[in-house]
Design a protein around this nucleic acid. Structure first.
Length: 374
RNA sequence: GGUGGGGUUCCCGAGUGGCCAAAGGGAACAGACUGUAAAUCUGUCGGCGUACGCCUUCGGAGGUUCAAAUCCUCCCCCCACCA
């Protein structure tokens, strides 16, 4: 077995990279899309389903698992892999995104972040050290540093100060877990908002710290697609070439292809899973909303070009019925499908990069989502 | 046949003289969702008009009133119980 952290570049097509990353629980072929399982479960799916659909690695969330059921309990249960019976790689986010999404429930200081639990209002303090200790308890294969995910619209002064804090926290995180310790990898997170020079500053500072991978955070936080792509195209190619590059929280199928094109290797996003539960499905004919009445008697498959369990076995009419009736099977089938769509797309991207045909693949997906929105 | 209760905008259902084009659900339609406080949320939902507004609507037909979904009369239907 390869040493965790081993990153092997296999092919390139323009800036797009085809590589593999070794972790303590297996090798991840990139570019990769990582389904999000915030609370130790990709909502509505079992580990068996995840494998069926082609998942290589999934996410968990430090904040949520700390709040419930608690990282120490999980440690006593043998770590998150045993606890959840998912034995592939797991990446855990640090709670940095909750600094953003729970803005009203938290207070940032140099020392760390104080949260008021969204569950019961109780106070909890997350320092960089605490966040690493939690992720050690969870047994994550890839640990993310604590960062401040800066909201869209913050001015340059705020963003610059924030990025410095993120760097100091990153350093403290690295000090809390030595490179190679426990076979757990640690990724730093580039911030800097929508200022290219600040992005470069952030990256420069982080590159002085030995991380096994580098992430781009603070994108898709409310900005336009144009603004996001602008920053992405600028900064992604500047991340270390010999380390995995992870674009956090992104995105739509086209966002992901855009990221791959810019040289990003890893992606995660709640979109396929959350949208599935809300009735929006990604298909080879674009986005569709299964709740529309026009599908009520549609006996055809959801997506004739999809080989997932939902598409192979059920009609649009039935899937609509399940959704309208709020049957639990609806969430599972829809999630299975959307994840299949994202995972198939990234699998095809890997192949396309090997064949030097990534541009064609991207054009194909752009055409799919050309009507209406992306 | 008797007694009681009902018929409200696509559906269910509130409203019992003016603040009612009429609460609230549902359906429909449109939309949002990007390191998950999300199996969630937003908007529209009689017609015309950008709007003050105008027109049509609360089983049917009359009537009372400045004003009726709301009161009165008759009629038509439905439900429950009794015979």
């Amino acid at each position: 077995m390869e040493k965790p952290g081993t990153f092997t570049l296999k092919a390139v097509d323009g800036k797009a990279r085809r590589a593999s990353l070794a972790t303590a629980h297996g090798v991840v072929e990139t570019p990769v899309f990582m389904p999000v399982g915030t609370r130790g479960s990709v909502k509505s799916l079992s580990p068996h389903d995840l494998i069926d659909v082609g998942s290589q690695i999934i996410l968990g969330n430090t904040y949520h698992l700390y709040i419930r059921p608690g990282d120490e309990l999980i440690a006593r249960q043998g770590g998150l892999h045993d606890f959840s019976n998912w034995h592939g790689p797991i990446l855990t986010d640090s709670g940095g995104f909750q600094v953003f999404s729970l803005e009203g429930l938290r207070k940032i200081t140099e020392e760390g972040v104080e949260f008021r639990s969204h569950m019961d209002g109780s106070k909890h303090f997350f320092s960089p050290e605490k966040v690493i200790s939690i992720q050690k308890n969870l047994g994550s294969d890839i640990i993310m540093v604590l960062d401040e995910c800066v909201p869209y619209g913050k001015d340059k002064k705020y963003t610059a100060k924030s990025l410095e804090l993120t760097t100091r926290w990153a350093r403290r995180c690295r000090e809390a877990l030595a490179p190679g310790e426990n076979g757990q990898l640690m990724f730093g997170i580039v911030q800097g908002g929508f200022y290219k020079d600040l992005r470069e500053t952030s990256l420069g500072q982080l590159m002085e710290i030995p991380f096994e991978g580098y992430a781009i955070g603070g994108l898709s936080v409310g900005e336009s697609t144009k603004e996001m792509y602008d920053i992405l195209r600028h900064i992604a190619p500047m991340l270390p070439e010999d380390k995995p590059r992870y674009l956090m929280g992104v995105g739509t199928p086209l966002d992901i292809l855009e990221g791959i094109e810019a040289g990003v290797d890893m992606f995660d996003c709640v979109l396929p899973t959350r949208n599935a539960r809300n009735g929006t499905l990604y298909t080879s004919q674009g986005k569709m909303n299964i709740k529309k009445a026009k599908y009520s008697e549609d006996s055809g498959p959801l997506d004739p070009n999809c080989g997932c369990y939902a598409c192979k076995n059920f009609s649009r009419a039935y899937l609509r019925h399940l959704y309208m009736a709020r049957e639990l099977l609806s969430y599972r089938l829809n999630t299975l499908h959307n994840l299949t769509f994202f995972l198939d797309m990234t699998a095809r991207a890997r192949k396309a990069i090997e064949n030097g045909t990534f541009a064609e693949l991207k054009a194909e997906y752009q055409a799919m989502f050309a009507v209406g929105e992306k």
